[in-house]
Amino acid sequence: MELFVFGCAALMVVIGAVGVITRKHPVHAALSLVLTLFGVAVLFVAQQAHFLAAVQVIVYAGAIVVLFLFVIMLLGVDRVENLRTEPLAAQRPLAVAVSLGLIGILVAAFATGSGVLHERGAGLKIPDLANESDANTTQLAQSIFSQYVVAFEVTSVLLVVAVVGTVLLARRTKSAVTENSK
């Protein structure tokens, strides 16, 4: 049963991921991304991380990709892109090199670090679904708001800085406004 669910979800993730890269239409690529995110959510459920699964769907599928689509539709870039033109020279070979490097790092990390992961996970108790359905949420909240509270707050500050920065960059300056009105 678990293997079957894993197989289906993994297939969803891989098909979605391939779709994001190969579909030429931006909207289709974004929809493929949704498929991938759903697959990951199913994998979370299979690992009994129900809270993470729900948040994955709400935040990524429900807000972030909707925002992508929103921008695509508003800017009217919903046409098939011409892939022949290269805005940056040597972009493609560089991309291949970087992705190979990333794969190398990930494989190395998993090969050497699996023992460490087990050690760290030893303190967490595996939720007993029948009796305490909220064990997931409680544990997550406890580690976010006690052990990792500084990292959590710094991340949120970073996000706010990014938002304010974007607003500031997108804002027309006073001189530009007056020039336009002349």
Binding site: F51, G62, N136
Partner: peptide
């Protein structure tokens, strides 16, 4: 009766956005 009950409803309602959005586009 999933352990995340109400969040499931929120997740579902955020998926419903796609139907309307993609229909229009």
């Amino acid at each position: 009766d999933p352990p995340v009950g109400v969040l499931f409803a929120l997740a579902i309602s955020s998926i419903a956005v796609y139907g309307i959005m993609l229909a229009g586009w």
